[in-house]
Design a protein around this nucleic acid. Structure first.
Lengths: 245, 245
DNA sequence: CATCCTGTTTTTACCGACAAAATGCGCAGG
DNA sequence: CCTGCGCATTTTGTCGGTAAAAACAGGATG
């Protein structure tokens, strides 16, 4: 029971700490798409030297969250409509395939987990404030958990990891969109319908509903992105300095 | 005219050079699965300092070709039967889905490209030596080109990139297997059948043939892996020693 | 008026050195 | 003969400083 050197948790090395931090900032849009990532600035931000930061950036670039330009540093990956379209199409195809597989292979435990995740998600409010959108971390976690539970019975770890990665990237787009508007859609009903079809073992219906769900979110984000592009970049407010190169 | 510093091509930074090199060595098995990756050794190998090497390793770890163990360095990713099974399953699901999409969206140019790639591949010998297996780089390139051409009409870049990554990992397993045996299968016929079904726009048949093709390769590799586990001088200790150093 | 050159300033990419942690080894004790 | 503990050695992860490449700004030029 003595706690000699390091017992619990993560003694998190500087490199992974920087990785986590930068990843989070990119995902929620605090580091805007296209923005330049100067090593020294980030090093100062993370309170670390340049080496761990470069390591983190290399990792992020490999995951597609950043772009490396040889001899010219790193930038946050862009989030343009073309990228969104490819992302949504990928998600529809891949998640539908994974869901079909999960439905084919899922056992009783999988059914229970799906049902439980659905109920847990349904109980939580999407936004912390009923009148306008305020991110609810608990809902986000439950949402992720639901989609994960749906596919969990699919015995193909690389595929599931890929789904996770695409979900991450989608979150980045959503963060852009939520700055502008939020959906009036009844997402809870969509989730319930997907869960029901999956538990009925109706692969075609479940896959179609899931694809529709993803497409609807994509369409919403596309509109928001469009509207955002139309608005002249917040008429030179100092706050825009973050986004400016 | 004045013979400037770097004239053509890539002035390849040390980090990317190391990345390419290590990646190649992992893919063709010269760095064996599970092997420890000591930074200093690799740095000496690449003629570079530790920082670029760590950067390359972080990238490889993000791609799944290496594992990072916090505070304990990097190792080459394992290549055990379980990993192979998940990989094959993932490839079947993902490539089938991508192929369906490509068949649905492909135009005449796509058809031509597929047909051309198939003919190019059919013309090349699988092995440089007819009596035993000797890797033929031209065939490898054409093979990759064929599978790529098949899916090219699928408008989902992230998905295609993922297929590439899985193909890379599969190559790693194949390198293990080819050290033991080589398939008597008529792979050329399989490729021809897939191309024909795709050009007939018969998505179901094409997807089924492709999945079968991938499964057959997977099964071949699995057998080879099994045989390999039995033969080497790993009598006293369970398989652990193979991974050690 | 746009364009090109040129010197200055940032920024990248890299190395070598250093502390903390892990690994392996020898040795006492059961 | 095996088991557990402390010490020397390796290895990791990190920093600060440095050459070289890119970005920038200003002035001369067609």
């Amino acid at each position: 029971m003595t706690a000699p050197p390091s017992l619990a948790g993560s003694p998190d090395t500087q490199a992974t700490a920087a990785y986590r931090r930068l990843r989070a900032e990119i995902l929620d849009g605090r580091l805007a798409p296209g923005q330049r990532l100067k090593v020294q600035d980030l090093a100062a931000l993370c309170g670390a030297g340049p080496s761990p930061v470069r390591e983190a950036l290399a990792q992020l670039a490999a995951e597609g969250l950043a772009r490396r330009i040889e001899q010219r540093g790193f930038r946050v990956a862009d989030a343009d409509p073309a990228g969104l379209a490819g992302l949504v199409r990928s998600r529809c195809l891949v998640e539908a395939a994974a869901l079909r597989e999960a439905i084919a292979r899922g056992d009783a435990a999988w059914e229970d987990a799906v049902a439980a995740a659905e109920r847990r998600l349904a109980r939580l409010p999407r936004s912390l404030d009923p009148t306008r959108y305020v991110t609810n971390p608990a809902w986000e976690a439950a949402h992720r958990g639901f989609h994960q539970a749906l596919l969990a019975a699919c015995a193909a770890p690389p595929l599931l990891a890929f789904c996770e990665r695409l979900r991450d990237e989608a979150e980045r787009y959503r963060a852009q969109a939520n700055a502008v508007a939020w959906p009036g859609r009844d997402v809870a009903a969509e989730h319930a319908a997907i869960a029901e079809a999956a538990l009925d073992r109706d692969a075609d219906r479940a896959a179609a509903l899931l694809a529709e769900h993803l497409n609807a979110t994509g369409e919403f984000v596309r509109r928001a992105l469009e509207r955002r592009a139309a608005t002249p970049a917040a008429r030179r407010r100092p706050t825009a300095r973050l986004a400016a190169e």
